[in-house]
Simulated scan of single mutants.
Amino acid sequence: MPAFSLDPPQSAWCAELRALAAERLRPLAEKGEPGHVNRALVAELGQLGLLERLFTSGAVDLCLMRESLAYACTEAETALALQGLGAHPVHAHGTPAQRDRWLPRVADGTAIAAFALSEPAAGSDAAALELRAEAGASDPVAEPDGGARWRLTGEKCWISNAPEADFYTVFARTTPGAGARGVTAFLVPADRPGLTGTGLDMLSPHPIGALSFDAVPVTADDVLGEVDRGFRVAMGTLNLFRPSVGAFAVGMAQAALDATLAHTAQRDAFGGKLKDLQSVAHQVAEMALRTEAARLMVYAAATAYDEGAADVPKRAAMAKLLATETAQYVVDQAVQLHGARALRRGHLLEHLYREVRAPRIYEGASEVQRGIIAKELYATREAAQ
């Protein structure tokens, strides 16, 4: 797909998604309880076949879904994205048994997934994980065949869908002192003994919580990928989902821009319409310019991912950084041009203003993305010398 345009079937699909989000998903979202998993909404995403597409489509389709849903219903977009984020490691690295048990339930919306990477002292610095996976021959959870077994001890924090998820992709340290090279990914069902969680009161419509691991038993059957190679699982997942976070941001920016176009075209001010004021017209033009630039970078990064390009980490970081920072700017300017009405509870822009802030932090804060970009640039330079 050319990075600068969508073909007619893609454009038609995006329009269909916007309509479905407005007509079928938004009413369910409005009935949900803030801070809790909206299982009816997730089930409807499954009924519409959108969750299954998380495992059958590429990065471009993921971005199209997230942008289109975000435009009309941010709650539906987030519910879909969190299912994908939590389950992608199972899809990409799981054993046949793991995949057969969980992916059909994720796809039909009956199992809630979560991606458990961040910790109280290891948010942006994912290589500094402290959740311990401790092994021992005398461990009472030892497998009969003598296979690998561990007990997870420690905490996770800022985990979306926690503590209400049905299973977690958990990243734990299996080799102390090894940095990123000593982390293993585990698939941990929520009913595993010793695993408890508490919700956090966050500026978010979906649940975010902390998890406590008190000698939670896991075995070789729970490993995703290879032992001590879990950091690759995490980064591979983030390289896919970071551009799509950008798509989420672009969807919000476009919704704010369209609302601003409608408002400034009809609002009377100073003997004319707001749009007739050059300062307003130029501001709207700047909002549109930045939104389109972010969109192009998002789809360029997604195309690079689908084509297996070597520079995906850099492109993914650039797309996530530019799009999330752009959406913050566009929504803020939209609020300014609407005036006090945009601050009223229930207004679209009041909703977007609350929603747009978090993406600049999760899946790697903006500062982390800049660090990734710089690292990749210098690595490319050194390789060329």
Rank of each mutant, 00 (worst) to 15 (best):
E350Y: 15
V42C: 07
G32K: 09
A133P: 02
V170G: 08
S5A: 15
G58D: 06
P140G: 07
A142T: 11
Q266F: 09
E325I: 06
T196P: 10
A293L: 14
A304I: 06
A165W: 11
P207E: 03
A121W: 12
V183R: 04
M318I: 09
A19W: 07
V245T: 12
Q254S: 15
H91C: 12
T380L: 12
P359C: 05
Q333C: 12
P163G: 02
T198G: 06
A294F: 05
G272A: 14
S366C: 12
A87G: 08
A384Y: 14
G246N: 04
L50R: 02
T260S: 11
V233P: 08
C14R: 15
D332E: 15
E376A: 06
F248Q: 07
G364D: 07
Y305N: 00
Y71V: 01
C73E: 14
I112T: 15
H206E: 10
K320T: 07
T260P: 07
H338F: 10
L25S: 12
L54H: 14
I159R: 07
Q333M: 09
V245A: 10
G147E: 05
S57F: 11
L240A: 05
M297E: 14
L224W: 03
R354Q: 14
Y168N: 01
G199W: 06
G272F: 09
T264M: 09
T110G: 06
K31D: 12
A310H: 03
D214A: 03
T110C: 12
Q10L: 03
E77M: 13
E155P: 04
A265E: 15
G179W: 06
